[in-house]
């Protein structure tokens, strides 16, 4: 089956948005939205379904195998990774593609996610001493280190907004890792900032629960981070 990629475009952050449709013929069963976008941009002349010449579609990618978070975008209403979104898994021929809505648009599907990294800095997320990692917490530290900072969890969060006081789920994995590796009484600054910027603003909607493209158990990390930072309880597993 041929697909129509219906892309919400904006050539600059302050320009007007418009939609443009492109026809894509898959080559293999494994073709993803990332494959399709690459192919469109490799065309000698890119034209939309009306035959109107079009500028290449700006988007970001890097690993092409779900490991770096670069290619997050909204596909048929759901934030996900373009390199993991296989065309054959879409039932409709026309696929709606939009940039993540929570972040400022740079161009087309590229958004500026620098706030994710700024927030981690504001939260003082680093080890202030040598890590102490007993075997029983290794699995938790491992899972907490898997976050790729793609921003999908923030996209669906009813409470997160860029430059808001609440930093959202994407700050939780790093917090969990660090608290797992430091005695709680030596991580007072992290705990305090976490309570202010994460715990306090989280409405526990758990909208982020099933959205993580890495399959991170966000609820588990959240429960652990809360236990350690707010309730000063022992770490879970």
């Amino acid at each position: 089956m041929n697909y129509i990629l219906n892309i919400l475009r904006r050539r600059r952050g302050d320009a007007k948005s418009y939609r443009q449709r492109f026809l894509y013929e898959p080559v293999t069963e494994g073709d993803t939205i990332a494959t399709a976008l690459t192919e469109l941009n490799n065309r000698e002349v890119l034209a939309d379904t009306d035959g109107t010449p079009a500028e290449p579609v700006e988007w970001e990618c890097s690993c092409l195998q779900k490991k770096c978070g670069a290619c997050a975008m909204v596909i048929n209403g759901r934030p996900q990774l373009a390199c993991a979104a296989r065309l054959i898994d879409f039932s409709r021929q026309e696929i709606m593609i939009e940039p993540l809505r929570k972040f400022p648009v740079v161009c087309d599907l590229v958004v500026d996610r620098s706030i994710l990294f700024e927030n981690l800095k504001t939260l003082h997320l680093w080890l202030s001493r040598e890590a102490e990692l007993p075997d029983r917490y290794r699995e938790l530290a491992y899972q907490a280190s898997e976050c790729i900072q793609c921003g999908c969890c923030l996209e669906v969060c009813p409470n997160f907004c860029v430059n808001g006081r609440f930093f959202g789920m994407s700050s939780v994995p790093v917090t969990t890792r660090l608290l797992t590796e430091m005695p709680v009484n030596e991580a007072k600054e992290i705990a305090k900032l976490y309570a202010r910027h994460t715990f306090a603003g989280c409405g526990k909607s758990l909208a982020c629960k099933d959205i993580c493209p890495k399959g991170i158990d966000t609820e588990k990390l959240l429960v652990n981070a809360n236990a350690m930072a707010v309730w000063k309880r022992r770490k879970g597993k």
Binding site: W126, L127, C147, R177
Partner: peptide, 16 residues
Amino acid sequence: KMIMSALIDEARKYEA
């Protein structure tokens, strides 16, 4: 990924 996560956190200390 695991090494990068740790080094990114360490670098953040110096970014601050």
